[in-house]
Amino acid sequence: MKKKLTPYSIEKKQVRWGFLFTVPCLVFFAVFSFYPIISAFLTSLTNRDAIRRTYDFIGFQNYTYLFTQSNGGFSLLNSLKATAIFTVGTFVPMVVVSLILAVLIMQLRKPGHSKMFELAYYTPAVLSSVVAATIWMILFQPTGLFNQISNFVMHTSGKDYQWLTNNSMLRASTIIVYFWKYIGYFTILFITGLASIPPTIYEAAIVDGSSRWHTFWKITLPLLKPTVVLVSIMAMLQCLKTFSTQYMFVQGGTAREPIDVITMNIYYTGVVNRRLGRSSAMSIILFLIMLCFTYLQFSTQKGGDDVEY
């Protein structure tokens, strides 16, 4: 990747310019990324709250507290569970379905049709999450449209599926909202990946008498593997950080406990209940989780570079 620059007599001057160009960003990230995360870590070792001016160093007590106590009914363990359910429940179907949709769209012979599907699938992604959650809150009402559709699809009549009142259904509801909003986005990512596979490979496969089904499993999927891995991890990281949907649901009056994802617990503990130390400890835990997955992303990406067309 790295290109060697040809040496110049004025090289030194240029080098200074190159460094100067990066300085604004470096300063920015130092103040708005590195300082806050270090500060969050230091705060997580104290019993600081937003009201008292003084606070003491208490070591890792916040962490032990979080893993053993209930934190006012909304424990970290519950949050980890809620986040895990949401993340797995969202990103697995999302990656699978968007991959299928991308393959199907690529099969269409009329470019106008593919464009139309791409546009229609992508449109929910331009709405803000708040708007998406607001629309779906109404659709999920007992007499709302989604119950009517569910009744139609499941051949039941007048059944209330309790989208917002039953705990597991509530979890499913947040997953549906997220799935709806981002399915088009991930479909487009896969379409781009598919488009980068040279058509000559497919032509060769057809000449060799490979069926389309066979071609998909033996050619498309292996060549697409780096994209699949990349998109999966990206989707996973995004799901881990989900906040707006759950926040809107809780503001709208649903139960908090089943969808109390970790970001929401940070928000409530730190901002609403003003326990800065404890919420910082949760922040650090979230950071560590993200760190693991990002490491995974980079390590798989290295392997992914082996694929050559």
């Binding site: 990230f29 969050a40 928000y267």
Partner: peptide, 23 residues
């Protein structure tokens, strides 16, 4: 420099919002 900037991608905004608020 490059690695330092890239590593900030791992820091979720949700984790630093409270220190940021104090800043």
């Amino acid at each position: 420099v490059f690695m330092a900037i890239m590593s900030t991608m791992m820091i979720p905004f949700e984790a630093i919002m409270i220190p940021l608020y104090l800043v």
